[in-house]
Simulated assay, not measured.
Amino acid sequence: MSINLQSVQATMLIPLWGRATASEKNPDILYDKEAIEIIAGCGMDFTEIAKTFGEYGGISYIVRARKIDDTIRAFIKKHPHATIVNIGAGLDTTFSRVDNGTINWYNLDLPDAIDFRKTLIADSPRNTSIAKSFFDVSWFGDVVFQEADGILFISAGVFYYFQESQLKEMVQEMAQRFPGGELFFDAESKFAVNISNRTVEKTGNRGAKMYFYINNPKVLEDWSEKLKVISWEPYFKGIPVSKKWESGTRLMVRLVDLIKMLKFVHVQFLKK
């Protein structure tokens, strides 16, 4: 079965493909056993995705997953019964890599995305799906949350597509509802968002425009007195550049960090 790159399913399958193919070749960065098994067994043709996104695309997906894994592991080491909410989960497989046996995990995504997810990844008692829009605050009530146990929200490759005003309002609501919680996500600079939009348009897809960007993450603290930026770092920081990668991939990895095109941002919701 071939994949339409303009479909909702494709936007979910692309990162899954990236994690599967790149983690097989770079297990020192990340090994995503579940993604590899899904790709091998789903009977779909990923030729066009591989041609479009290439080696650098795959590397970027496993690095993002690795940074998120590391953040979750550090959080649940302090909060072993924590709640983790994966915003815009798609076909994410993080739970299978980080589960400590006691966390509660929620995959939040639109109903059609969750329907497709369930054809490939089944829910389980501590790893359940919420089929709602991120902007539908009723999902707050679907999340079992004990303040003492801690809550961490993660989002990978999702916030780019939101208007800043939309995201600001939602993060303010989350900070109010989940005091002491934390949020970890990736973001592009304005320069990078402009490049990304031009690249996506070249594929013929004009319905996936990116809006949100961050040049200086500290500006998030202006959104609310309840927000504190714990840390932020360049996308590939701490990831060794492999000599076996193509020269273009090595160049992109260095360039992205040099001019701060991509970054990870970690925010805390203050209790005051």
Rank of each mutant, 00 (worst) to 15 (best):
Ile230Val: 15
Ser7Val: 03
Gly101Pro: 14
Pro80Ile: 04
Leu5Met: 10
Lys202Met: 05
Ala208Pro: 00
Ile76Leu: 09
Gly181Lys: 06
Asn86Tyr: 10
Ser60Lys: 12
Lys78Trp: 02
Lys118Ser: 11
Ile62Phe: 10
Leu251Glu: 12
Leu220Trp: 03
Phe46Arg: 02
Ser133Pro: 12
Ala113Asn: 14
Lys132Gly: 04
Phe140Gly: 11
Cys42Tyr: 04
Pro234Tyr: 07
Leu220Val: 02
Leu251Asp: 09
Val267Gln: 03
Lys263Cys: 13
Asp69Gln: 08
Ser129Pro: 01
Asn104Pro: 04
Thr11Asp: 05
Ser129Ala: 15
Pro240Arg: 08
Ser165Gly: 01
Phe236Cys: 02
Ser129Met: 01
Lys271His: 12
Ile103Gly: 03
Asp45Cys: 02
Ala74Leu: 15
Lys209His: 12
Ala74Ser: 15
Tyr235Leu: 08
Phe264Leu: 07
Asp28Gly: 11
Ala82His: 07
Asn127Lys: 04
Tyr213Ala: 15
Leu13Pro: 00
Leu270Arg: 15
Ile59Phe: 02
Phe162Cys: 07
Lys260Gln: 15
Lys260Asn: 15
Thr119Ile: 05
Lys243Pro: 01
Tyr31Glu: 01
Arg198Asn: 09
Phe184Gly: 03
Ala50Leu: 00
Val256Ala: 08
Arg73Asn: 08
Lys168Asn: 04
Val267Ala: 00
Met174Lys: 03
Ile87Asn: 09
Leu5Val: 10
Glu201Ile: 00
Thr94Trp: 03
Lys226Leu: 06
Gln172Gly: 12
Glu246Ala: 13
Asp45Thr: 01
Met252Trp: 09
Phe264Ser: 00
Ile239Cys: 09
Ile239Gln: 04
Ser138Ile: 06
Asp136His: 06
Pro80Met: 02
